[in-house]
Design a protein around this nucleic acid. Sequence first.
DNA 1: GTGGATGCTCAAGCCGACTTGAGGTCAAGG
DNA 2: CCTTGACCTCAAGTCGGCTTGAGCATCCAC
Lengths: 142, 142
Amino acid sequence: MEARGEMRIGEVARAAGVRVSLLRYYEDVGLLPPAPRVSGQRRYDASTLRRLAVIDVAQRAGLSLDEIRDLLEIGTDPLSERLQQLAERKLPAIEALISRAERVRSWLEAATRCECPTVDDCALFDEPPLPAAPPLRATPAA
Amino acid sequence: MEARGEMRIGEVARAAGVRVSLLRYYEDVGLLPPAPRVSGQRRYDASTLRRLAVIDVAQRAGLSLDEIRDLLEIGTDPLSERLQQLAERKLPAIEALISRAERVRSWLEAATRCECPTVDDCALFDEPPLPAAPPLRATPAA
DNA sequence: GTGGATGCTCAAGCCGACTTGAGGTCAAGG
DNA sequence: CCTTGACCTCAAGTCGGCTTGAGCATCCAC
């Protein structure tokens, strides 16, 4: 049964709903294992689709490609362990993000009720709605 | 009283806690009005500090520099109006951000309880914790 | 056997908000 | 007079996650 290893890059891309370039890119950066070549062309099997889905989920969960790569490495210790460490590292960040976002929401709500003619006297701008540095990146609608 | 217009760029930067380069950059992109020059060197008055604070607040509230520039333009219509429009435009986005972030938090919490050896069977990766595209950028700790 | 779709590699571009670097000017103090 | 340090301009680099483009090779249907 040589039934595996027969998808070409375009088919995989179509099936996964991504661009061809993304597959090549993921291979470059080590998120996908180097696909076997048939006269220079990549061949993929179905497991690639699962892997792409995994990457997608992980990415939506806020993991960077670097973190995902570490997670996917067929590694020394089991997934559960690395996942736990990762999650514990990231939870404080996401919690901070949430509370910052909530403060921003309040600020925006207050802004809808602003009646000041200029910023000079507007109390909205008197103090930061957020304590410290990081500029809340909401990744505005695509 | 020619007491205004006497701070040099370094003093302003120190007072505001920013880099000198930021002041020049803000001038370039139109966030600060061109400072008057004395033999080529910029001179600032105290209002600049307020303006920098305003920009800071606005930025932390998730506004882009472009949006802030629009807001600051000594414009046709009063601040309150532009601010309202802006806030109404941005509120849905921030609300979406919050709910996405909350879902991510749940995912991470679930992840701490994961016991799977590999990603292949791990239900955590079966479906996206987030519906659509935008990759939640938490602006990880500086 | 041929032409259009599909594949390849490698380099460069994009976004936003800045910083860094090269190379030059200017005023003041010793 | 000379050095020091603060200032100047303009170009390019940074980061992450990709895409786009140029210039070829390969595959498949007719």
